[in-house]
Simulated assay, not measured.
Amino acid sequence: MKRHDLMQKLGQEKLVAVIRGSNEEEVMQIVDAVQKGGIHLLEITFTIPRAQEIIAKLAEKYADDGEVVIGAGTVLDVTTARLAISAGAKFVVSPHFDKEIMKLCNSYGIPVFPGATTVKDMLECLRYGAEVIKLFPGDTFGPTAIKSFKGPLPQAEFMPTGGVSIDNLSDWLDNGAFAVGTGSSLTKGAKTGDFAQVTKEAARFVEAVRAYDKK
């Protein structure tokens, strides 16, 4: 999927599932459950052991799938970014701004969503070509922060992650979020092995976005 198409898909679907897990088997089950519920943009975090191997397997599994997009999250340095891209990640998410990560991803045409919490850092993200800025942790700031940041930076697009739930999703979108990242609220059922619950929660998020778009 080309960069433009991925960004268009993100803007339409508005949901990125942040996937964490203790091992490959659990991650694969979570991914299965989430995509069955209708969330197609999946961020596999590098907090997972051997994350690059899991990304590679998922990239191969969904290579011919026109809907599911595998990305990499918690990318802390340019070495990890290179591993993610080599494994087949179609987008990269960082909790911070790193110009070397930005330059590498731009060189390969891979969308990168760097984290920032100040106007100064957000401006640096924009200067290095960030199409979406990750606002993390979202629950520290609250939905109205996006509207405030868009005051001096109306051209910036934001993806809050951390504390995003069904209950506050519409508040984030009302305040100008381009998309949201959701992790623990979405995948909490996996902690008890209830992957059917993960699928149900994913479907609830998808339905909430559809209902919002119809308003």
Rank of each mutant, 00 (worst) to 15 (best):
D121T: 13
R127P: 15
G189D: 07
V69N: 05
G71Y: 07
N175S: 13
V206S: 02
I30M: 05
E131Y: 02
E207C: 03
L76D: 02
I39N: 08
V132H: 05
E207F: 03
V132R: 01
R3L: 09
P111I: 01
M102R: 03
R50W: 02
T80R: 05
A211K: 11
A196E: 12
D5P: 14
G66A: 03
W172N: 08
A208R: 07
V119D: 10
V78W: 01
Y212T: 04
V93I: 14
A59K: 03
A156M: 02
V68W: 02
T74W: 06
G71K: 01
Q52P: 14
I133Q: 05
T79F: 13
E131Q: 12
K120F: 12
T79S: 14
E124T: 07
V209L: 03
A196Y: 04
R20Y: 10
W172L: 08
A51F: 05
L169Q: 02
K200V: 10
V198K: 00
T161P: 14
G11Q: 11
D5N: 14
D32N: 13
F205L: 00
R82W: 05
Y108D: 10
F141N: 11
I133L: 04
A211I: 13
I101R: 08
K200I: 04
A179W: 07
V209S: 06
H40Y: 14
V209M: 06
G88Q: 08
